[in-house]
């Protein structure tokens, strides 16, 4: 799935997979921080993910 998304042009830093148990709250915080940081670094490119046509119905 990651392969195909990146094949279709999603920036590699945007997609993260992680295995976090419900007991691993600290790992969740770490991962969430890292994901946010990497996504923010790519912010200049986020326009391409937005819809361009007006919403109907």
């Amino acid at each position: 799935m990651k392969n195909l998304l990146e094949h279709m042009g999603i920036d590699p830093g945007r997609l993260h997979f992680s295995w976090i148990s419900s007991a691993e709250s600290t790992k969740f915080v770490e991962v969430a921080k890292k994901v946010t940081e990497e996504a923010v670094a790519l912010k200049s490119k986020e326009k391409k993910y937005m819809k361009t046509k007006p919403k109907v119905a």
């Binding site: 990146e6 094949h7 279709m8 042009g9 999603i10 920036d11 590699p12 490119k45 391409k48």
Partner: peptide, 10 residues
């Protein structure tokens, strides 16, 4: 590159 891929599929 990711941008070229994006443009290709667009």
């Amino acid at each position: 590159t990711p941008d070229e891929k994006w443009a290709y599929f667009d």
